[in-house]
Write a protein that binds this DNA or RNA. Structure first.
Length: 111
DNA sequence: ATTTTGACGACGT
DNA sequence: GACGTCGCCAAAA
């Protein structure tokens, strides 16, 4: 654990708060943490999330377009999609359908 | 130490 | 509206 993990830790924390069957995007998380334009750092944090002891539902985090940009970082090629589909989310060609319905904004949902 | 790159997003052209 | 550029910060080369 490093001090610099503080930022990442918050990212993981928020990511774990994502409800079942919902998704969010990197930018929203970054904004919620006060790093409005550091969406990339959130992505980086996810990459490092494998190093974390606690499991992070990174599959519930996609880019703003609802595109599963990070699916290549999971095992296989469609594990991420599979996980999301098992939660009732419809995905076609790596893109989440009805994104507005399943989208979960920490700023709006969290106090 | 410097450069490149990256699970992004907003803005400019 | 498609495409290009910049910003943001951290890690790997």
């Amino acid at each position: 654990m490093k001090e610099s993990d503080n930022f990442f830790e918050r990212v993981y924390h928020v990511a774990r708060l994502i409800p079942f069957g919902r998704v969010t995007n990197y930018g929203s998380i970054a904004r919620y943490l006060g790093a409005a334009r550091s969406a990339r750092m959130v992505g980086w944090a996810m990459n490092n999330s494998h190093n974390q002891t606690a499991e992070v539902p990174a599959h519930r985090v996609v880019n703003k377009k609802g595109l599963l940009t990070g699916k290549h970082h999971f095992e296989g090629t469609n594990l991420m999609q599979q996980l999301l589909e098992s939660e009732g989310i419809v995905i076609i060609e790596n893109q989440i359908q009805d994104l507005e319905k399943v989208f979960w904004d920490p700023m709006k949902e969290l106090p």
